[in-house]
Amino acid sequence: MISWNKYNLFKLPNKHRRFEYVPRYYDPRKEELEKKIRAAQKAAAKNGGEGDASIARELSFRQNTSDKWGNSEYKAQAMRSNLRLVIIFIIVLIGFYFLYQYLDDVGAFIDKETGK
């Protein structure tokens, strides 16, 4: 009997090869927070070692609070977006106002020019 596996036109791999990719995520805020926690723990160890958990909790709370309240870039972007929406809304309102005011005049002009 002839083994046709030797005579294939295209070579196929014998086994599936796995691509093992471990994604990496870099969070600068988390790294800064961990650095502050380590520094606070070293300072606490020099002073007697009490309250490691409370220091970590306090630093974490400060970091989260400053992230939410102190993001001036986000606030500025939201302000610009809101201002843009208000300006577009005002332009649309003015357009509708002029359309409503002068619709009869435009209609009469068209009728006059077409001879109706």
Rank of each mutant, 00 (worst) to 15 (best):
G51D: 05
Q41N: 05
F109S: 15
L12T: 08
L83M: 10
F89C: 08
V86M: 11
L93F: 10
V92P: 00
L12S: 12
F98P: 06
A44E: 00
K46Q: 06
A44T: 00
V22W: 07
N5C: 02
S3D: 14
S60E: 13
N5G: 11
G51R: 03
F61Y: 10
L99Q: 06
N47M: 02
F10H: 03
I94L: 10
P13C: 02
A43K: 14
Y7A: 09
Q77A: 12
V106H: 11
D27I: 03
E58I: 08
Y97C: 13
R17D: 10
T114E: 08
E34W: 01
D111M: 12
V106A: 14
S3T: 10
N14P: 14
E113L: 08
R62P: 00
T114C: 02
I55F: 06
N8W: 11
D27S: 10
A76K: 14
K30N: 09
D67R: 05
K112M: 13
Y26N: 15
A78N: 11
L33I: 07
K6I: 05
I94T: 09
P28R: 04
E31R: 11
N64D: 12
S3A: 10
I110W: 05
K46S: 06
K75V: 12
S66I: 04
E32G: 03
P13H: 02
P13S: 04
F109H: 09
N47Q: 11
W4T: 13
Y21N: 02
L33S: 01
V106N: 04
Y21A: 08
R29F: 14
K11G: 12
E32M: 10
R29D: 12
A39C: 04
T65W: 10
A108E: 10
R18W: 02
R80S: 14
I94V: 12
P28C: 04
I87R: 00
I88E: 01
R18C: 08
L93V: 07
S60P: 01
E32P: 12
Y21G: 06
Q41T: 09
R18G: 04
M1A: 04
L103Y: 06
I90E: 13
T114R: 00
E34D: 15
L93A: 15
V86H: 02
M79A: 12
E50G: 01
I88F: 08
A76Q: 09
W69T: 14
Q63D: 13
Y102K: 05
E73R: 13
S54D: 05
